[in-house]
Design a protein around this nucleic acid. Structure first.
Lengths: 150, 150
DNA sequence: TATATTTAAGATAAAATTGTCTTAAAACTT
DNA sequence: AAGTTTTAAGACAATTTTATCTTAAATATA
């Protein structure tokens, strides 16, 4: 997998949130059931996103989480960076610290363009792009496919 | 990191092996010292590559490992697949089993081309390409850069 | 044949990731 | 004000990955 399990769960949840009204809070319980992800584990992941101000949260009845900005304004990269960090968008393949144009490794030149393309892709693709795609074509975002779009 | 630590170590070792004579065996001890990787850990990784017939090994004095084919014939993808598996070249971003053109996830279409590009890149780039690049420009393949090409 | 060298293989340990459980704090409801 | 619901936070456990250590097996050399 290119992203960690945590990151994948975070992306699934964020894409789902972008598919529904941004007004009201959605409880993590509901999210975890819809997306078939362990409640406590998902809570931790969403806490990270709340800490990064990509999500807003509220405690108590009627509480839950919601996007802090429009799904059109939240890019996939923000979500990935908040959970997995920016290595995938910046680091070289051989994992050498400080690898770059000035001090490259043998794989740098070969990889650079593709890496930049990945960066561009995740920088320009929004949660809304993904939720619209999924909702319009009724695509699945859970392994079993039982998930239904709001 | 896009690849596991094991995979990165494996790539570094294989690129180095492609830079020297294929005739004689190189001891893992020597490799581990040159590349600054734990001997026992590197041994396990290279054992995987030996099991996949990318490397040949011999025990005893004058023993060690060597490429089973010319570095020109061994593609980066073979090394990555032997250690990390083929997920990065085939799997979808959201980690849904069976995700593909017929049964996609919302991110499938967006990711497909780039993923195929990664696949193409690693399928067509050989160990020799990398070792030539590194040797010609004297690039580093260890974090500290103390490494010297044969 | 005996010895030294080197990979193979498996046990063990440490660290990171993934997942669970409990308690606290905040916000709503009655 | 009391009780319920929900996120926050931290302890704990399981799993995977990374790393180390020990013993066995094979090969060369003397």
């Amino acid at each position: 997998m290119i992203f960690s399990t945590s990151c994948v769960y975070g992306l699934r949840a964020m894409i789902y949130l972008a598919s529904i009204s941004r007004e009201d809070y959605v409880s993590i319980k509901e999210l975890s059931e819809k997306l078939d992800i362990s409640f406590h584990f998902l809570t931790k992941i969403l806490q990270q996103l709340t800490a990064e101000d990509i999500l807003e949260s509220m405690k108590g009845p009627k509480g839950g989480v919601r996007l802090s900005k429009s799904g059109r304004e939240i890019m996939l990269k923000e979500v990935v960076e908040a959970i997995d960090g920016s290595a995938i968008f910046t680091e070289c393949v051989l994992g050498l610290p400080g690898c770059g144009s000035e001090k490259p490794c043998p794989m740098h030149e070969m990889w650079e363009d593709t890496r930049d393309e990945i960066n561009e892709l995740f920088t320009t693709t929004s949660l809304q792009d993904m939720s619209k795609e999924g909702k319009a074509k009724d695509l699945r975002i859970t392994p079993d496919g039982k998930f239904v779009w709001g």
